[in-house]
C-alpha cells in the first residue's frame, strides 16, 4: 500500500512511457524518408539504366539505326534484339517518333508483355534515345522505351 503511494515511482513509469512514445514517434518519422534498395525509386532508376544501356549498345553495334530506319524490321529484328538484350522478366514497349512528335509505329507495336502491366501499379521506367539519321540523310528519330518488370 505504501508502494502504491510512492509518487516518485509512478512518475518514473510515466516518464518512461512518454519517452518511449517520443522515441517511437521520432523513428517512425525518419522511416518515412528512408528509401530501401527494393523501393520503387531504385527500381525505376535501375530500369532506366538498363534501358539506356541496351539502346546504347545496339546503337554502338550500328544495329539500332538499321532497324529503326527500316519499318519492315520493327516487328521482327528490332523486337527480337530487345527481347534478347533484356532479362526475360522485363516487359518493354518502344515507340518511334519523328522530330515533329508524330508517332511512326502506331500500326506496328514493338513490345513484349501484357500491355496492362504498364498501366498497373508496378514501377514503370521511361527512356528517351535519339538517332539523328541514317546513311547520308539527316532524319532524326526519337525513341521512347517504356520498361517494367513482369
Amino acid at each position: 500500500m505504501k508502494r502504491l503511494k510512492n509518487n516518485r515511482a509512478q512518475m518514473r513509469v510515466i516518464e518512461t512511457i512518454l519517452a518511449s512514445f517520443v522515441l517511437i514517434f521520432a523513428i517512425a518519422f525518419l522511416n518515412i524518408f528512408t528509401v530501401n534498395p527494393r523501393s520503387s525509386t531504385y527500381e525505376v532508376d535501375d530500369l532506366e539504366k538498363l534501358g539506356y544501356n541496351v539502346l546504347h549498345d545496339l546503337d554502338e553495334q550500328r544495329l539500332l539505326g538499321r532497324f529503326v530506319y527500316n519499318p519492315s524490321e520493327w516487328a521482327t529484328n528490332l523486337t527480337t534484339a530487345f527481347r534478347v538484350s533484356f532479362p526475360s522478366d522485363i516487359y518493354f514497349n518502344l515507340t518511334i517518333y519523328d522530330i515533329n512528335d508524330t508517332l511512326l509505329n502506331s500500326n506496328t507495336p514493338i513490345s513484349y508483355g501484357d500491355p496492362k502491366v504498364f498501366s498497373g501499379s508496378t514501377p514503370v521506367a521511361s527512356v528517351t534515345y535519339i538517332l539523328v539519321g541514317h546513311d547520308w540523310n539527316y532524319d532524326p528519330r526519337i525513341l521512347r522505351l517504356v520498361l517494367t518488370r513482369g
Binding site: 539506356y52 546504347h56 546503337d59 539505326g65 528517351t128 534515345y129 535519339i130 538517332l131 539523328v132 539519321g133 539527316y138
Partner: peptide, 11 residues
C-alpha cells in the same frame, strides 16, 4: 549528355 555526344558524332 551521353546521347547528345553520340548523336553529334553520328551527325
Amino acid at each position: 549528355i551521353d546521347n547528345v555526344e553520340i548523336t553529334a558524332y553520328r551527325l
